[in-house]
């Protein structure tokens, strides 16, 4: 039995507590925005927020999660899982991402967006080194320049 709060909704399932959070989200709850890329914590495609921090859900057994989980689906529909402040930030990041036309294939992007959200929540105006230190998600399409620009745009857009 696993009990969790996901995007503001309490969830109770009979899933194996050892099942990584990633697969609980994808295969049990149909929250497919969170992606599988490596299963070993290396790529960040599976990034979710747990209590606001970016976490690689492929390495976290679902049964060990105690904090509130927020997935990319909350960015698509911010009524769920976010405080009003977080929802405003999420919207700013989303708009910056679109304005800078960041995604190419798009597969890494849900993870990127959530990593950026976690960064901006604690560091509203990150320096270049801070961006480089926080954004460790891999993008095989090489969208890094635009990721940097989108984060700067979202930061400048505070107001």
């Amino acid at each position: 039995m696993v009990r969790l709060t996901i995007n503001g909704t309490p969830i109770e399932t009979d899933a194996d507590p050892e099942m990584p959070l990633l697969w609980l989200l994808r295969d049990r709850l149909d929250l497919t925005g969170t992606k599988y890329g490596c299963g070993s914590g290396l790529c960040g495609a599976c990034t979710v927020l747990i209590d606001g921090r970016a976490v690689r859900s492929c390495t976290v057994p679902a049964g060990t999660v105690t904090g509130a989980v927020v997935t990319i689906e909350a960015v698509a529909d911010a009524r769920h899982g976010f405080t009003p402040d977080q929802a405003r930030l999420a919207d700013r990041v989303r708009r910056a991402w679109i304005a800078e036309q960041v995604p190419q294939c798009g597969y890494c992007q849900p993870g990127m967006v959530l990593a950026a959200l976690a960064l901006l929540a604690v560091d509203p105006a990150p320096t270049e080194p801070a961006i480089a230190a926080a954004m460790t998600n891999l993008c095989r399409c090489g969208t890094y320049d635009r990721v940097r620009r989108a984060i700067r745009r979202a930061a400048d857009d505070r107001g």
Binding site: V75, C105, G106
Partner: peptide
């Protein structure tokens, strides 16, 4: 011209092969 697929690829709505149900 803004790309057609960017919004859905930003917020997780885009359906990849692995997302088919």
């Amino acid at each position: 011209i803004p790309r057609r697929d960017v919004a859905a690829k930003t917020d997780g709505r885009a359906t990849f092969g692995i997302d088919v149900r």
